[in-house]
Simulated assay, not measured.
Amino acid sequence: MIVTLTPNPGLDRTVEIERLRRGEVNRALGGRVDPGGKGVNVSRALAAGGIATVAVLPSGGPEGAQLSALLAPIGVQVVQVPIAGSLRSNITVVEPDGTTTKLNESGPELSTDEVRAIERAVVGAAGNAAWVVGAGSLPRGVDAGFYAELVSVLRDTGDHRARVCIDGSGLPLARAVDAGPDLIKPNTEELAELVGRPLRRLGDVVDAAADVRKRGVDTVLVSLGADGALLAGPGEVLHGWAPPVRVRSTVGAGDAMLAGFLAGGGRGRSALVAALAYGTAAVGLPGSAMPRPSDLDLDVVVVTDELDLDRALGGTPT
């Protein structure tokens, strides 16, 4: 079983249009509303593959009620932590060529008591979990050390210790790295910010992942957008990719990749293959729809440990 925590969830409304025209009326060609938030997306993708998952999230206002209602029919068990504020709503505008414009609200401000209640809910849900995933931005009122504290608390909890993955960015990710999570999943930009230097070639990413692992992270999974993904773990560095597909939406593709990696065992070549199959399938689906097993094609994924370290990176990070 895999537990996810989304500190700042919401509703993701996706609108498909012919072309975004600023200052004009834009007629929608289609639209959908999905449960939103990185951890929520990971749970959705896992549930679509028949993997038991629990999504821990704050819940408040009509958006919170709608979010829970959307998750219930798809097999995601939800642990709601009541908050006084309302969850956010995000809008994504998608054009036929795959160009994506996102308008994300900041979300509610949480009180100290609400933050502590969320921590207790995660620890309570983690008792029988193989993994706990903390993912996404932190809402107002939550200290940048929240993920780091979560890693430390889960490490010291009971005889059974779930492995911990953090998928964040900026200072919350940097502080979590120093707490020593088992896995992080940055994209190229997030990893570059973490190590404080640009990453223009695959060799730069390999060096950056090695630096992060020296700080106590067991495994680093880096999404490279159109260039695939890099996996740096104990005794191995692997690069994988899949053939290009028609992009309908990149929203949630990185979350699907992480779900695939965990569904594939959370370690090694087979997990990287699953990660790339999930991520590739996700970009071919509308909105933030998560792939089902019938959408996956593991046979087209290529993984190698013979890295072209001089390969320039040019894909859009997911």
Rank of each mutant, 00 (worst) to 15 (best):
G233F: 04
L221V: 02
V212D: 00
V217A: 11
C165R: 03
G225P: 01
P291S: 10
A259N: 01
D178M: 12
D297H: 05
D227Q: 05
G196D: 13
I166V: 15
R292W: 11
W241T: 15
P293W: 14
G260V: 01
G265W: 15
G170F: 05
D204K: 12
P234W: 08
V195P: 05
T250N: 03
D297P: 01
K214M: 03
R197L: 01
G254A: 03
L262D: 01
L258R: 14
V251W: 09
T250F: 07
L221Q: 01
W241F: 14
L298Q: 12
P243N: 10
D227S: 05
G235N: 07
V205K: 03
L262Q: 11
D204L: 14
A289V: 12
G170N: 09
R201G: 06
G264N: 06
D295L: 03
A179K: 07
A242T: 14
Y278W: 15
L231F: 10
A282P: 15
G235W: 00
I184N: 07
R269D: 06
A282Q: 15
V206H: 09
E236C: 08
A281M: 15
P293M: 11
C165Q: 12
G260W: 06
T280P: 13
F261Q: 08
R292S: 10
A208P: 04
R248W: 05
A289T: 14
S223L: 06
G196K: 03
L258N: 15
G279N: 12
C165S: 13
M257I: 00
P234K: 02
A263Q: 12
L202Q: 01
L262N: 08
A253S: 14
V212H: 00
V205D: 00
D211I: 06
L276K: 14
V206Q: 04
I184H: 11
G284A: 08
A192I: 09
V177K: 13
G284P: 06
L298I: 10
L276C: 10
L285I: 02
G268I: 00
G225M: 04
A232T: 00
R175W: 04
